[in-house]
């Protein structure tokens, strides 16, 4: 079944590659994908990236592709919600809701802008604020005429989003444990930085400066890549 999915997903991508390489039709090699920094899933021979799976869901309402996204992200979204303070039953229900939203909003997924993991994270985060916190999340409106636009739109970002994701992943691994731990606390526990500082028996200033240090390293990693 997994192989069938991979085959289903290949044609559109192969077409893209072909267009870029003097119309020579050839299969996409795993190495190429790795060079683009895309996530690969499953066994050898079935390595569709999350971005390809999501594109298959968006364009063809591909249920098999959705099942694989569900199996990868569903349990992680549930873990995220539990760490954010949801009990197991609500975490289970909310994780299902989040994955349903992934299916329903698939058409809005833009792989040139974000990796699938980023997109799932923002959906899970917003759902949590909405349901667990019962609060509004103030967000910009990209269509607002009062929004100050980017000086110039960066050119082709298709490759960038997934590459950046891979680069960030590597950079997080490189962080000193105390900084990585703090980042995880900041992202996964619904606590203010002062509460985190209290719990770690650290001055708030130390928490902030460690977060700043971590950010500096991640920024440098991304800049080196670009």
């Amino acid at each position: 079944m997994l192989n069938a999915v991979a085959i289903e997903i290949r044609p559109p991508l192969a077409a893209v590659v072909a267009a870029k390489s003097a119309l020579v039709v050839r299969p996409v090699l795993p190495l190429e994908r790795a060079m683009r920094g895309e996530t690969t899933f499953g066994e050898p021979g079935a390595e569709a990236s999350a971005e390809e799976l999501m594109t298959a869901v968006a364009q063809r309402r591909d249920r098999k592709a959705f099942v694989r996204l569900f199996e990868t992200f569903g349990p992680r979204v549930k873990a995220y919600l539990i760490r954010q303070g949801a009990d197991r039953a609500s975490a289970e229900d909310l994780a299902q809701d989040v994955m349903l939203a992934v299916w329903r909003r698939a058409a809005q997924f833009d792989r040139s802008k974000a990796a699938v993991s980023t997109w799932v994270f923002t959906i899970a985060r917003n759902r949590r604020i909405d349901i667990l916190r019962r609060a509004r999340r103030p967000e910009i409106d990209p269509e607002d005429p009062a929004l100050v636009p980017e000086p110039e739109e960066p050119a082709d970002r298709v490759v960038e989003a997934t590459q950046r994701r891979e680069c960030l992943h590597a950079a997080v691994e490189e962080l000193p444990e105390e900084q990585a731990r703090l980042l995880r606390l900041a992202y996964f526990e619904d606590k203010s930085h002062s509460v985190i500082a209290e719990e770690l028996a650290l001055p708030l200033g130390t928490v902030k400066s460690r977060l700043r240090l971590a950010m500096g390293k991640l920024r440098t990693a991304l800049e080196t890549m670009e």
Binding site: R76, Y80, R83, S117, F121, L168, H169, Y187
Partner: peptide
């Protein structure tokens, strides 16, 4: 994006 990376690796 960092949130997505942390979500994936947890």
């Amino acid at each position: 994006e960092l949130g997505g990376v942390l979500l994936e690796e947890q």
